[in-house]
Amino acid sequence: MDFTFSEEQQAAAEAARGVFADVVPDSVPSPALTRGAVAEDFDRTLWARLATTDLLGLLLAPEHGGAGLDPIALCLVLRESAKGLARVPLLESSAATATVQAYGSKELRTSGLLTRAARGEIVLTVAAHGRTGHEPAERAVTARRDGDEWVLDGTQTAVPWAYDADLIVVPAHTDADRSDRSDRAVLALVTRDQEGVVLTEQISTTGERLGELRLESARITASHLIDADGAWESLRLLLATGTCALALGLGERVLEMTAEYTGKREQFGHPLATFQAVAVQAADRYIDLRAMAATLWQAAWRIGTGAHGALPASGDVAVAKIWAAEGVRRVVQTAQHLHGGFGADVEYPLHRYHAWAKHLELSLGPAAAHEDTLGDLLAAHRLG
């Protein structure tokens, strides 16, 4: 593959740098010092700026007010957002609208939902963690047809921005009414205030408010259910790849902070950065970040182009998740170690990055699980 970014992708990244340049991570109170969530809503002012600069519809076609770009462009923008810990549902809303565009019914695609989302008027999020966060999300909710409606039952945990989004995309499974497609995955679009939808507040590692979503015979119209092969898999892979982009951006900023600190902090009359032990640790983390970047762009390229390889795109995403989950943890741990006492100071912004890194690591899941997935794919390829 060609790792050179196109002019359009670079323009999106440049616009993102301008929008996120003024975001200050330490302006949000520390989760350790705050009871409950750090804020009741996401950064609506920043969201409006993203809409003004056309960054909310990166994956949408021009007919919907979008830019018609690809997952690489989205990941470039997400990487910039993570450097300032931007509190916006950019990944979830972008991934959800891209899935609606690609797999939704004609009625849903032409309803104006996509255009309004690109303008920042409608926010979408995704319930992608299942009942416990350690099981396939589509197994946590059942969907059954009842006349012209669908009835949903089940629970999804840790739904990001659940209290702020206008629509929540919920993966579910159903026994098909056609014998050739039994027990398939579907996507349902629900609103948080409709009958049968119950939200219970949860607080993430970052201090952000999540929601446990319980569906108790919640009904939606057929037009708000996406029943297309590959829809959930496409959304799942895009969310995972976008999370890897967030981990990369966060890690890059943390390493920059560490370089700045060790370059100024002196011990025995010399900057810490001149000590071999410090330089070696920083160099190891730089290698982690380069590996995270290479595997991220490979995964984003595969899911964006549909290019065929020896393994399905899920294999590339699994490799990216392995490096992102392990790499971001090592980067923040090394940063805290090299910052000394400042690394544990809640008045210093590094603790915010550590909290977000832990959240991203948990969202991605353990590297060992992704290694098992990759092993299964390799075994299936060999046997095939």
Rank of each mutant, 00 (worst) to 15 (best):
1 M>S: 04
7 E>C: 00
15 A>H: 02
17 R>G: 12
17 R>V: 05
21 A>I: 12
22 D>Y: 06
23 V>R: 05
25 P>K: 00
26 D>R: 10
28 V>K: 00
29 P>R: 01
30 S>P: 07
31 P>H: 01
34 T>K: 02
38 V>N: 01
39 A>M: 04
40 E>A: 03
41 D>P: 02
42 F>M: 03
44 R>F: 02
45 T>V: 11
46 L>W: 09
48 A>I: 10
48 A>E: 14
54 D>E: 14
56 L>R: 14
58 L>P: 00
64 H>Y: 10
65 G>T: 14
66 G>K: 03
69 L>V: 05
71 P>T: 09
72 I>F: 00
72 I>H: 02
73 A>T: 11
77 V>M: 00
83 K>R: 15
86 A>Y: 13
86 A>G: 07
89 P>L: 10
92 E>L: 05
99 T>C: 15
105 S>H: 04
106 K>W: 11
107 E>N: 04
108 L>F: 01
108 L>M: 13
112 G>D: 06
112 G>V: 11
116 R>A: 13
116 R>E: 09
117 A>H: 07
124 L>R: 02
126 V>F: 01
129 H>P: 00
130 G>W: 14
133 G>R: 07
138 E>C: 11
138 E>P: 00
149 E>A: 11
150 W>S: 05
153 D>A: 15
154 G>F: 09
154 G>P: 04
156 Q>P: 08
158 A>Y: 13
171 P>L: 14
171 P>S: 09
172 A>Q: 07
175 D>S: 13
178 R>M: 06
179 S>T: 10
183 D>F: 12
187 L>M: 03
188 A>N: 09
188 A>T: 09
189 L>F: 07
190 V>D: 02
190 V>Q: 00
196 G>H: 08
198 V>T: 12
199 L>H: 08
199 L>F: 02
200 T>Q: 08
201 E>Q: 13
208 E>G: 03
208 E>T: 03
210 L>H: 13
210 L>A: 06
212 E>D: 09
215 L>I: 06
216 E>H: 09
220 I>S: 08
220 I>D: 03
223 S>P: 00
228 A>Y: 00
231 A>K: 05
234 S>M: 03
235 L>M: 15
236 R>W: 11
240 A>D: 12
242 G>T: 01
246 L>I: 05
246 L>Q: 13
246 L>N: 10
249 G>L: 06
250 L>W: 15
253 R>H: 13
257 M>E: 10
260 E>D: 15
266 E>F: 10
267 Q>R: 13
270 H>Q: 11
272 L>D: 04
277 A>W: 04
289 L>M: 15
289 L>C: 12
291 A>C: 10
293 A>C: 11
293 A>M: 12
294 A>T: 10
294 A>I: 06
301 W>P: 00
312 P>K: 07
313 A>W: 04
316 D>G: 03
319 V>H: 08
321 K>E: 07
322 I>K: 07
325 A>G: 11
328 V>F: 05
330 R>S: 14
333 Q>I: 13
335 A>N: 04
336 Q>C: 08
336 Q>L: 04
337 H>Q: 15
339 H>Q: 11
339 H>S: 08
339 H>F: 15
343 G>R: 06
343 G>N: 06
347 E>M: 13
350 L>D: 04
352 R>N: 04
353 Y>A: 03
362 L>K: 07
365 G>E: 05
366 P>T: 13
370 H>T: 07
375 G>A: 14
377 L>E: 09
